[in-house]
């Protein structure tokens, strides 16, 4: 197991192996998202209260899921980079920051669009929306710190520390905001309970969530591969690779 872990530290090895994964993941992501969207928009039943407007949930919830797990992945990758000085983890953490920020923005925008027909306003200072907004600010802080430091390794380490501090703070922020004010419906999926929606509604949602995760994996791998090429352009294998094309 540890040899696998050590090999993962080599950008070249990752570049080669991820090149083989990438087409499969891309196909899976496309398939899941196409099937999920078609099912969700055309075949899933209407909500008895919200009518058709609830269908935005099929974008909103997966985006919100990813916004949160992406921060987790970024912090874990940052910790791995800090502890084992693994360059690949630094690159993955950097890629996570901008991808996560975009998913958070997507969740915020779809939330606002959904809020208009449901609550009658684009924005309410509701607990979940607010903690999402704060999460967005945390992402922007990591991105800003990364771009402010010119030295690459120092930037990676500093943003990893910031991501870890943010990780400790996220539950505190979440609960403090929740006690402060809440209006949002409770979480759509919990591991322990049966979903409150009928199966025709939540199965496409689950497909969409899986599709978004696959899409996230594709985006992350592509950005990390790009980052590897940028950082390792002096090495021989990159030169050979580029000459071949």
């Amino acid at each position: 197991m540890w040899t696998w872990f050590h090999r993962l530290g080599s950008p070249r090895w990752f570049y080669e192996i991820s090149g083989r994964w990438l087409p499969w993941l891309a196909v899976a992501a496309t398939l899941l998202i196409v099937v999920g969207t078609t099912w969700a928009l055309l075949f899933a039943p209407q909500d008895y209260q919200q009518g058709n407007s609830f269908r935005i949930i099929y974008i909103h919830v997966p985006a919100a899921f990813l916004a949160q797990s992406c921060y987790m992945i970024m912090a874990v990758a940052g910790a791995v980079g800090l502890i084992w000085k693994m360059k690949l983890a630094d690159m993955a953490a950097k890629s996570c920051a901008s991808i996560g920020a975009s998913f958070t923005l997507l969740a915020l925008i779809t939330g606002a669009v959904w809020g208009k027909p449901t609550w009658g306003t684009w924005w309410v200072w509701d607990a979940r929306l607010t903690s999402m907004l704060i999460l967005f600010f945390l992402y922007l802080g990591v991105v800003a710190l990364h771009s402010a430091i010119t030295d690459r390794d120092q930037a990676a380490k500093a943003s990893a520390v910031l991501a870890l501090v943010g990780l400790v703070n996220i539950p505190i922020i979440k609960y403090s905001v929740e006690w402060w004010n809440t209006l949002h419906q409770p979480a759509t999926f919990t591991v322990t309970e049966k979903p409150a929606m009928p199966a025709e509604m939540w199965v496409p949602l689950l497909i969409m969530v899986l599709g978004f995760y696959c899409f996230f994996a594709v985006a992350l791998i592509m950005r990390t591969r790009f980052e590897i090429l940028v950082r390792e352009w002096r090495t021989r294998w990159v030169t050979e690779l580029l000459n071949k094309q």
């Binding site: 600010f137 802080g141 800003a144 910031l162 703070n169 505190i172 922020i173 403090s176 905001v177």
Partner: peptide, 12 residues
């Protein structure tokens, strides 16, 4: 930018 989001729980 880095610090203000982390100040929010104290403020609340």
């Amino acid at each position: 930018l880095l610090v203000l989001p982390l100040y929010i729980p104290v403020l609340i």
